[in-house]
Write a protein that binds this DNA or RNA. Sequence first.
DNA 1: AAGGCGGGGTC
DNA 2: GACCCAGCCTT
Length: 349
Amino acid sequence: MSFSGKILDWYHQNKRSLPWRKSINPYKIWLSEIILQQTRVTQGTPYYLRFVEKFPTVHHMANASEEEVLKLWQGLGYYSRARNLHATSKIVVNQYNGNFPNTYKELLKLKGVGDYTASAISSICYNEPQAVVDGNVYRVLSRYYGVDIPINSTEGVKYFKSLAEKVMDINDIRDYNQGIMEFGAIQCSPKKPLCLHCPLNESCVALQKGIVDRLPVKLKKTKVRNRYFNYLIPIYKDANGNQFTNLQQRKGKGIWQNLWEFPLLESNSILDIEDVDNRYKEVLDGIGEVELIEFNEVAIIHKLSHQHLHTKFWILNTGIQIPNQISFEKIKEFPVPVLIADFIKAFKF
DNA sequence: AAGGCGGGGTC
DNA sequence: GACCCAGCCTT
């Protein structure tokens, strides 16, 4: 039997029941594909369920604010996906009359939709013969055909896309594409693949050569940058006992764009209480004299894929109102990075 | 062509 | 610690 035939047979026997597989509604497929970019099914599924609950159609999402979308996305990471998700929902409503484009070529024009996602949507929703190439497909093809071209090189991207197109089943592309990805996730997994009872184990080049654990080949790793964050939490209590603090929205480039955080004093190394006392006015002026309290003695190292954020939180009790202050009860309504959400939880606002 | 962009799970 | 995850975008 052909490669694609075995993939299809395996899929029909082993596919998981996943919420987005219950329909081929392009809005739901698009939503699931954006959520699942660089994200495991187990992590993305609860987000998908909350999104379809809150935004049943593309119109619901388009009518929401970016802030609402970011809040629902909070904790999932790669927040440009959420910003593009919202922007695209508005484009689909306003420029496509609420109907998603139904071809690979048109889908590719949408924000946040690249080659993989356009292929996935067009094949799953419309049976258009476009080969998906995600991390699973790279792994399955590189092993089965014994290809050691780095998957993240320009040559590799072209080679594997071409190979994927060559071996796909255009007569059932919807199930074939989902099948090869599911096969990569369940059977041909990164660690400890189930080669012993694999339907392809008699013709898998990597297995025959004993190099399954060395494929696929990937170039280098990202270098990690250390940064030193001092979050300053101003606190003002009024005569009625109501408490206030301050949040600011991250703008411009870099991490966590459009998410909210406490006033941030970034430094070149870890600061002690004296340093902060001398410098807090750089980012938090107009709050008068303060009582400065070190919240965590040992810096929290929040790890992103490319940055390590050595973070200390400082409490600044002040006797006068804080510019742009917000009440404690409002804090939880803002979309914030996990680092901030964890602090909010620990501080018990 | 290379680097930036999150957070969590696994080994 | 290192690797990986239904990748995309900018420079």
